[in-house]
Amino acid sequence: MGSMRVALMVTCVNDAMFPETGKAVVTLLRRLGVDVEFPAAQTCCAQPMVNTGYLDEAVPVVRTFVDAFAGFDAIVTPSGSCAGSARHQHGIVARRTGDAGLAAAVAETSPKVFELTEFLVDVLGVVDVGAYFPHRVTYHPTCHSLRMLGVGDRPRRLLEAVRGIRLAELPSAEECCGFGGTFALKNADTSIAMGADKARHVRSTGAEVMVAGDNSCLMHVGGILSRQRSGVRVMHLAEILASTEDAPLGAVVGGGR
């Protein structure tokens, strides 16, 4: 990856709420020889505004995004949802402004955005990232990574290559967990009904850990699993992939949670 400039798009949720996921991506990419950078001017992909209907409010956020990531060859993010937003929604926001400069900038950055597993499998060409995680794990494919991005079996292949892991099949895996951004608040009852069913399926697997590629979904289902005192932990896929025998989870860069 010598001359390739790679940026970490950590996402606002991970930045403010789940910094360990960002640290895990840094650890993992460095282990794979990628000198990842963190453009400090980045903030958010604007999805919270777009998906709630505040397109005018999204405009300055998209401008901040394209400015922050200008000049990078690849923009890697540990979120299927935010990758989908950058790839599919920034163009809609730009078109609405009628600003040809913004549209051109979006057309330049959008295709360079990769969800973490896409970057690992497609760009770096690795499936075995040298991870070790001796636990029973069930994987939930989040909707935007599954249907908006089409990451397919990449996360699964990466997990299957993790040493010591025991993967348990999640029933009704492809059904939405009910997070849906502001849906979780505007339609809290329906969101919780969906999340409760997801939590039930997770518990039926006997897994210790539920893993996914989006911390927002994990915060929702994990919040229900915690309220139920189920003992099931939720973890971002990046944290499992960063974990090794020498530096097991809890001792990744920056210390444990």
């Binding site: 950590v10 709420m17 960002g22 963190f38 400090a40 979780a184 999340g195 919040g223 915690s226 920056g254």
Partner: peptide
């Protein structure tokens, strides 16, 4: 609306950006 049925992780003391810096 969030915590009626879901626990909410407390925000961490240090953001990712602060850690990076």
């Amino acid at each position: 609306g969030w915590t009626s049925a879901r626990d909410l992780p407390a925000p961490p003391a240090e953001s990712f950006r602060a850690w990076w810096q």
